[in-house]
Design a protein around this nucleic acid. Structure first.
Lengths: 256, 256
DNA sequence: CGAGTGTTTGACTGTTCTCAAATGTCGTGG
DNA sequence: CCACGACATTTGAGAACAGTCAAACACTCG
């Protein structure tokens, strides 16, 4: 458990360094943030729309999501989050939550007190900028989702989401070089993220599989032919703003 | 023209003060930002995806939008912007634009140099926070659009967008107390924002009109019964994070 | 084994898209 | 003043897409 905490703080530092290296001092400041860790079960709420949290939730392990609900009771998932993400960072500046947060799998979360974060930002303006940048990447992802939901047919939209998930998991070391990873959520959650019905998700999924574009079995996800999938999905990772150094694989010329 | 510049800087200050009052010094810093103003015609690009702008565009008058385009050539509008908005503020921290920006009407823009803004943020951390907050409100609006696109039927989705537009225009003094305002864009642009076809937008519009929920004629928009429209649309302005104080205290509408 | 959850299938309905054409509006130039 | 083109709105009809409801099937865990 303590290891997880150290790990996710390291992942966080790594994300923040996307642009410029942090100083040892800054890095230590992050590592030294007091954090109470807590576990959640799949389906459990972390924070609800309308609340005014006094902590930010840094995910240590597992998947969580932001979501909103209509009056008719249908849920729209707004984003997926895993290790290293702080899905409610904006509550520092927008105290009243405009959406809810829940665990999609069993989850470990480290809670960072608002007042400590604020103190850190005051003392280290560069860190504040790094976190600001992080929230801007969030926004960029929303823009991409809007494009996909509004203008791509279901098949491409779903393919694009898979590309994004793999790319983001890869960026934090949760995917293999062959782009295998674990996508530990049921089809119904996928449906709520794509704005589709569960039935249609199921059929679209079969379609992707029969085209040999993906394989997804009991959570184990893999992409037989990344070039095929990403070009079919019109996936261009630029919008994730992962900087060059992230050597791994997502931009290899080897395909196309 | 110079008046417009002063006006939009004032609008900007007003927006930034949503939470805490700025000091006279801070306020003056904003007002003193050097800005080159420039005009655009409807349809003209302000900045394109992939570029690395060295200025941020503060809108002085008219409407602009963020958008992205699929390979098939269809456009998704991601947000609408008018006086007081800085739609590419994020280019300060994410240098490479992940979307494009264009004028939807004839437009006046004041360009604020990146280096000046950065200097301001360094000297005035509270201002940096105020701008950060502004970008977070953007993100909140994206979340709401995702919910609307994914989970509301066309009629409600459109009604919701109208509520949002009126609320935002009202917040900067561009709507009357009776919630009349000018929506100076064609139905095709609305279609690209809602992720619908123009034909369907037209039919949905007729539907809203025939229910007496809106009136929109040659750009002149009005809402006969706000309670009816906003409850039909499930519109709750909380996600706009306009703070309490600015409740429909308005300057007479004279604009665009 | 049985409950619970998640996935798959079928049949049907409804929404939204596309294509194509008609109508309306506005400004320009003859 | 009228004719014209450019643009925007409206209409119709058929096809494609995605939703609902309901049931069957599969897998996991106690």
């Amino acid at each position: 458990m303590e290891n997880r905490l150290v790990d996710c703080l390291r992942t966080l530092v790594c994300k923040l360094e996307a642009v410029t290296k942090l100083t040892a001092n800054e890095e230590q400041t992050i590592q030294g943030l007091p954090a109470m860790t807590r576990g959640f079960q799949a389906g459990q709420a972390i924070a609800l729309e309308g609340e005014r949290p006094e902590f930010c939730a840094l995910i240590a392990s597992g998947w969580a999501c932001r979501y909103k609900v209509t009056e008719a009771g249908s849920r729209q998932i707004l984003s997926f989050h895993f290790a290293g993400d702080i899905p409610d960072l904006q509550s520092l500046l927008l105290p009243k939550l405009d959406h809810s947060l829940m665990a999609l799998t069993s989850l470990e979360v480290a809670f960072l007190p608002h007042d400590r974060l604020n103190a850190v930002f005051e003392a280290h303006p560069r860190l504040a900028r790094a976190f600001w940048r992080d929230t801007l990447v969030d926004a960029s992802i929303y823009r991409q989702w809007l494009l996909c939901m509004g203008r791509l047919p279901a098949l491409q939209q779903m393919a694009h989401l898979f590309c994004e998930i793999v790319a983001r998991l890869d960026a934090v070391g949760l995917a293999t070089i062959q782009r295998e990873c674990i996508i530990p959520i049921p089809q119904t959650d996928l449906a709520d993220a794509l704005g589709m019905s569960a039935v249609h998700v199921n059929r679209t999924l079969q379609d992707l599989r029969s085209h040999g574009l993906i394989s997804w079995n009991r959570g184990n996800f893999s992409v037989p032919d990344w070039a095929a999938l990403s070009s079919f999905a019109e996936f261009d990772p630029a919008y994730l703003h992962l900087e060059p150094k992230r050597s791994s694989q997502l931009v290899p010329a080897s395909q196309t």
